[in-house]
Design a binder for these strands. Structure first.
Lengths: 242, 242
DNA sequence: ACGCGGCAGGAGCACTGCTCTTCTTCCCTG
DNA sequence: CAGGGAAGAAGAGCAGTGCTCCTGCCGCGT
């Protein structure tokens, strides 16, 4: 706290104190190792002791960096949210600006690709929550990146005179109120109905990936890639992006 | 094997042999106790030793009934599939025959109600799969009950001159072939497109419940019930049930 | 220069899934 | 109807887990 204000000379205000730096480095290495174990054996196979072993330290020393195993998992969840968010945003940014449907398919495709490459991390984000885990503000932000991207896409569609068609169904009072306040902060250009439609599309994206990843489509198709693209194209069309 | 063929007299062919009966009874009690622990502490908190303790037996004796903890979980999964299937079928059967949308909302509502009442069992069915678990034929059948019910609903709609509207998009070759063979065995009255639309509706149902249960709708609404009904009504409408 | 605080190591507790070995009890068969 | 074999139950034990406490070491700021 209020420390750089006192010292004169060349004392730099931001000075990681050498000890803090090695601490950050070790924290990073722990997460790195944990991530590898997670990818290999799933969240149930993540063991503090095994991470410590691999890092050549004793298990009790871990608790100076993460107060519990669940806290380590929570940190991994936040990181994973950020990572998939970045990847998907990059994919969307690389798509032709003019093609709304192309951007939509870039978003859905990149999300699925990341999920297939990191199934355990994906399951951590969108599967059953880990028992002790409670989403904190640190994870709520990163978790919203993809939905926000979708909202922006739909907003662009509306601006271009397209977007989800109104089906005339009334939204229940309480839900309408909730959506109105959400709209005020993240989607000023959308109606409540369009926002609800966008959230449903987000549900369809995650639901489809879950179904594939968790084996619920075994009886439906064997060409998951084509199936997914087909369904997502339909969803994008109903969103008024085509 | 070939046992009833020899004995004469009044030896009944089906004769549970008293020992087999107590075995079945104990198996039932184990699953019952395990189900309670599962509901209380989640799948991670299910412990063979704790179940044995509660039943007044020693842990090693459990292995005579279930070769491993994962096998116990698998049995619970199969049971849960059957239970939710029965509940949902009953709810659908109780709805007015004439109202297709009413029957659809009965299916979706009953599924959600069961999920909220048994969140841990639901998570076992539709959340991240347990590490060692591999779906067997014993679980594939029960797991298909709700989708089959939805297929029947859509078939009834088609028979009544409604059903999902064709959007004219071509289905990828491989997917079309898969859907064609699936159609042949479970949905002869539907086109491939209509079948794909039904599977997407199933995805939307499960996806919406997952989002609510796993906390992904916290920023969207607080009135989950109304939100769910609103969205499912829209899905039912797009299925051509309204 | 010194003392405090962050840090690593080790021992230990209570728990887990699972195996093996021993002993009892029931059931089928000769 | 008697005996042998199988099913069952119990106990000890192994390797592993999360987590806590205590003991020192060592770098950092005063």
């Amino acid at each position: 706290m209020a420390r750089g204000a006192r010292g004169m000379h060349s004392e730099r205000v931001i000075q990681p104190s050498a000890r803090a730096r090695v601490r950050d480095e070790l924290t990073r290495e722990i997460k790195e190792t944990a991530r590898r174990q997670l990818a290999a054996d799933g969240s149930a196979g993540l063991s503090l002791r095994a991470v410590a072993r691999e890092l050549g330290m004793v298990s009790s020393a871990m608790y100076r960096y993460f107060p519990s195993r669940d806290d380590l998992l929570t940190a991994l969840i936040a990181d994973a949210h950020d990572e998939v968010g970045s990847v998907v945003e990059a994919a969307e940014a690389a798509a032709r600006r003019r093609s709304l449907l192309g951007r939509w398919l870039a978003v859905t495709g990149a999300t699925r690709t990341w999920a297939l490459a990191q199934p355990q991390q994906y399951a951590l984000l969108f599967g059953s929550p880990v028992p002790g885990y409670q989403p904190t503000d640190a994870t709520i932000g990163p978790a919203a990146r993809i939905p926000l991207l979708m909202i922006k896409l739909v907003s662009d569609a509306v601006a271009a005179g397209r977007g989800p068609v109104a089906d005339g169904r009334p939204i229940p009072r309480a839900v309408r109120a909730d959506l109105k306040s959400l709209r005020a902060s993240v989607a000023p250009e959308l109606t409540e109905q369009q926002l609800a439609h966008t959230v449903l599309a987000w549900t369809e994206l995650v639901g489809s990936i879950n179904f594939e990843l968790f084996g619920h489509l075994k009886a439906v198709t064997s060409d998951y890639q084509s199936y997914f693209d087909y369904q997502m194209q339909g969803v994008g069309q109903r969103l008024g992006l085509a």
